[in-house]
Amino acid sequence: MAQWIDACSVDDVDEEDVIRFDHGDRTFIIVRDHEDNYYCTDGMCTHEDVHLADGLVVEATIECPKHSSIFDCTTGEVETPPACENLCTYPTKVEGDRVFVEI
């Protein structure tokens, strides 16, 4: 049963940046785009087990730090290989100065 989890403060993530968010035994990323929208996706690249939190955010995309696969954070879709499998995305909402994710 999915529930809303308090993930971080809005200021924990810089503009066009990403942080790692661990919950239970799972790893996610919280991404803030250039227009202050927040997204949550799986934290590991679908190509190899690399933490996307070390990657590069451009607008609402995240680029894997190892092999440069690019994912659209709004949908999780792969934009460039080598990854071929999409990321799972999770709903987010901002309440006050906190970012919540539904996982």
């Binding site: 190899e48 190892k66 092999h67 290989p81 080598p82």
Partner: peptide, 10 residues
């Protein structure tokens, strides 16, 4: 060669 180089980095 894209994938070859990916493997080279892995």
């Amino acid at each position: 060669w894209k994938y070859s180089h990916v493997r080279h980095h892995s």
